[in-house]
Design a binder for these strands. Structure first.
Lengths: 208, 208
DNA sequence: CGATCAATTGAGACAAATCAACACCAGTGG
DNA sequence: CCACTGGTGTTGATTTGTCTCAATTGATCG
């Protein structure tokens, strides 16, 4: 069921890693490939080398919640317990490097990464709990624009269904929210995966 | 109702003791008292000695999202950045001890605490994003019952408004959701702050 | 006892989900 | 080149769940 078609590229390039971690080779995960599954034994730490990774959870009745999209340079895979509570998949074809902890030395660096993730998770809780559909979409575009070049052109690598499961909406509502922003003159949508921000201030006011 | 409510003492101001290096004595924060505010300088670590603490954020238009309720023995106050992104308040009169970050709790211990909080935050994202009002309420009762010794009697120390802001609902909907569970024979509500679980399996199925 | 705030309950409004139809695009094979 | 096809996205019509607004009860306290 879990097709982990891996595409090993050899060689360990020196990379900025958390202190105390030993890097190994980068694995390539095609679109939709599972990096680890819910219930898998935890312990390893991963780093996104290129592409996008999503962290998800399935409920008993099949609904999906995406907790985070992770981009180049971000770490994932750490867990409080022995098993993965969530699963990780490649969104659009991603290169992932597996790292191993060597004990206490990495704890300080890991702590910084974990606190960063916690801050983002808490911010996302506000969006999930107290925002309308259009406001969620505005917040999402701004969140995606962070870390991308500041040219008002934002790339949304994932598909509408992924955005919906991240924001707690349906994909139809995502589509409609984009239309509201578009017809309000706040964004342009030149193609499915591209957003052009026309009025960043308006977006920030909606998302604040 | 609340045992500590007669136990008023003047709470020591947190700002005054930031410079203190030794783990200070427990400060008492009466109901609704602010432990630290949004924008306050971060750095200290806190531990709940008794009572309940809520971690909140206000949006620009006044809506509130509660990220977590913290009970006896739990830590809070760590931040990724230099400022507190959220604020902390006493829910029902709480004793809070301030600790030194690197003194009483090493980086490894702090990491474990942070990962625990991250796991709970991610689980809460699922509840916020993909559950109906009644299911949210079921999940909340189960979450509160963890860490309470008696199996079927669950105490909800906070008021309906707090529950609503934690679950992304209105307090009216919280009240209605409780009624649905009550009329379904799943819980009893002997008093405002007490829940008796009659059918735990049903609750778990709703929250799974 | 009245004052005040919290909680419940009801009626109607509204936002998002659901159900359904159609448009768009890339890949395939005729 | 053109019809097929399946997946993805958009749009429309209707339903449903939650919010909003409003009234009432209940709890707490001076």
């Amino acid at each position: 069921m879990l097709i982990q078609s891996k595409f090993r590229s050899g060689g360990t390039t020196p990379a900025a890693t958390v202190a105390g971690l030993q890097p190994s080779a980068t694995s390539y995960y095609p679109e939709g490939a599972v990096i680890y599954a819910q219930g898998d034994r935890a312990g390893a730490l991963y780093r996104v080398e290129f592409g996008v990774v999503r962290i998800c959870r399935l409920t008993a009745d099949g609904r999906r919640q995406i907790n985070a999209f992770l981009f180049q340079g971000e770490f994932f895979g750490f867990e409080a317990g022995a098993e993965h509570e969530f699963y990780a998949e490649s969104v659009n074809g991603a290169g992932v490097r597996m790292l191993r902890t060597t004990g206490d030395l990495g704890a300080a660096g890991l702590l910084a990464v974990a606190l960063q993730r916690l801050a983002r998770a808490q911010q996302h809780q506000v969006v999930l709990g107290r925002r309308s559909a259009t406001e969620k979409m505005a917040a999402f575009i701004l969140e995606m624009s962070e870390g991308q070049d500041e040219s008002n052109a934002v790339v949304l690598p994932m598909q509408r269904n992924d955005i919906a499961d991240y924001l707690g909406l349906t994909f139809e509502t995502v589509s409609r929210a984009l239309r509201v922003l578009r017809e309000g003159g706040i964004i342009r949508v030149p193609s499915v995966h591209q957003i052009e921000v026309l009025d960043r201030v308006a977006l920030e006011e909606m998302a604040a």
